[in-house]
Design a protein around this nucleic acid. Sequence first.
DNA 1: AAAACTAAAAATATAGATATTTTCCTTGAC
DNA 2: GTCAAGGAAAATATCTATATTTTTAGTTTT
Lengths: 239, 239
Amino acid sequence: MANAVKTIDLQVKTPRSLTSQAFESLRADIISCRLAPMEKLRVHALSERYGIGATAIREALSRLVSDGLVEATDQKGFRVCGVSRSELLDLTNTRIEIESLALTKSIANGDIEWEAEAISACHRLSRHSGPGPGATDEDKETWSKLHHQFHYALLAKCSSPWLLNICELLHQQSERYRHLAEFATKPSMRDTTKEHNELLQAILDRDALLACELLRKHFSRTTEILLEAYQTADNSLVA
Amino acid sequence: MANAVKTIDLQVKTPRSLTSQAFESLRADIISCRLAPMEKLRVHALSERYGIGATAIREALSRLVSDGLVEATDQKGFRVCGVSRSELLDLTNTRIEIESLALTKSIANGDIEWEAEAISACHRLSRHSGPGPGATDEDKETWSKLHHQFHYALLAKCSSPWLLNICELLHQQSERYRHLAEFATKPSMRDTTKEHNELLQAILDRDALLACELLRKHFSRTTEILLEAYQTADNSLVA
DNA sequence: AAAACTAAAAATATAGATATTTTCCTTGAC
DNA sequence: GTCAAGGAAAATATCTATATTTTTAGTTTT
C-alpha cells in the first residue's frame, strides 16, 4: 500500500564492511595462488597490501579457517593451507562422490527451466576462448566463473541446500589446485567443450548413471593432468 | 642428552589464546542452545559474559560463520543461525547419504584395530545411563561425547580426511537440533542401545548395505522424534 | 656444537574513536 | 484516533591506534 514511488532502493551495492572486502580479496588471492600454499600470512603485511586495518584482516582470516583455505595456530598466526598429492586425490574422489549425489537428485527434480539454464550456461562457456596459454588473467577469471556457473547450474535443482553448500566448498578447494598448476599445464590436448556437451546431453536425457560417470571422468582427467603437470614442473606437491 | 630434569613440560595444556577459548565456549553454547537460534550476538554483551575482550569475541564469531553456526550481516553484526523443519529434514537426509558413503568405505578398509575400537566405543556408550530425563547436564554432555565417539569410530577408517571433515560438520549441526528439543522429548520409548548394537553387528559382519540401512533408520528415527517433540511443545520451528 | 641469553619481530589483546543502525518519540496527515 | 513519516538519541558495529605478550632469530658463553 501507500505510494509506489518512495525510496528508489535500486539495490545499489551493499555498503560492505572492510572485513567482507578483505575476506573476498584474501579468498580470491588464496584460490588463485597469488598467496601460495603454506605461505605465512602476516597480519601487518596484509594490512598494508590491502590498505585495511589489522583487525579487519584478522577477522577475515578467521572466517577463512573453517573454509579450509587458511590454518591458524595459537600464538603463531595464520598461514595458507598446504597442498599435497594425497589431498588432491582425496579431494577429487570426495568431490566425485558427493557431486554425483547432487547431480542424481538434480536430474530427478529438475524441470524445464533447469534444463534451459544448464543449456545456456553450457553455451556461454563453449563460446569463451578458454583458459589456454594465450589468455589474459581476466580471461582466465571469466572462464573460471563460466565454468563454475555451468557446473553449479547442473546441481542447482538437487533441492538440498546442505548438499549444495558442500559441493561449493569442495569446488573452491579444487579451484585452488587447478590454479596452482595453471602456469605449468601444457596447451591441453583436451576437448573440454566436448566433455561438457556430452555431460549436458546425458542430463537432458535424464540418464543419471551416465551423467555421473561422465562427471567422474571429467574430474578424474583434470586431476590426472594436474598431477602430471606437477611432476614435469617439479612443482613439488610434497606428499 | 643433557640432564633429564629440566623443564617438566608435562603437556600441561596448550597455553591457548583467548580467541580459541572464546571460540570453543561460543560453539558449545550455540550447540547446546544456551544461545538460542536467531538470538542476536552482541559483541559487548558476550565480552562481559565470558570475560574476554571484544576483539577476541569478534574473531571467534567470525570463525563460527563458515561452520554454519553463526551468520554475519555487514554493519548489523552476528546472530545464531536459525533453524527450521525443512533444514532439519535436509540436514538429516544429507547426513544419511554422506555418512553412508563414509561408512561403506570404512567397512571396506577397516582392520581388526578398527573393529576393536568400534566395539569398545559401543560398549562404553551402552554402559552409560543415557541422556534421559533424570540425567544431570554433565551426564548429558558425557553421553553426547560417547555417542559421538561411537559414530566417529565407525567412520574413522574411511581413509578420506575430507569426507570425515564433512561428516563432522554435519554431526555438529545435528547435535544442535537434538539439544533444541532435548527438554521437550519424552522418556523415549526407544532402545538406542539395541540400535547401536545391531549397527555394530552389521559392521563386524562387513555387511555394508545393511549397516547403511540401519544408519539411515537410526538418523531418521531421531529426526522423527524431534519433529514430533517440536509439535507437541509448540516449540515452533518456523518453516 | 649445545645451551642460554638478548634483541627484534610478530601475534594478541585492550581501549578508544568513528560510523552505522536501531529505537523511540514527536509531528503531521488522513 | 490511527497510521505513517521524520528526526533526534541511544545502542551497536566497525575500525584504528596502542600496549602487552609470545615467538623467532641472532649472539654469546660454556
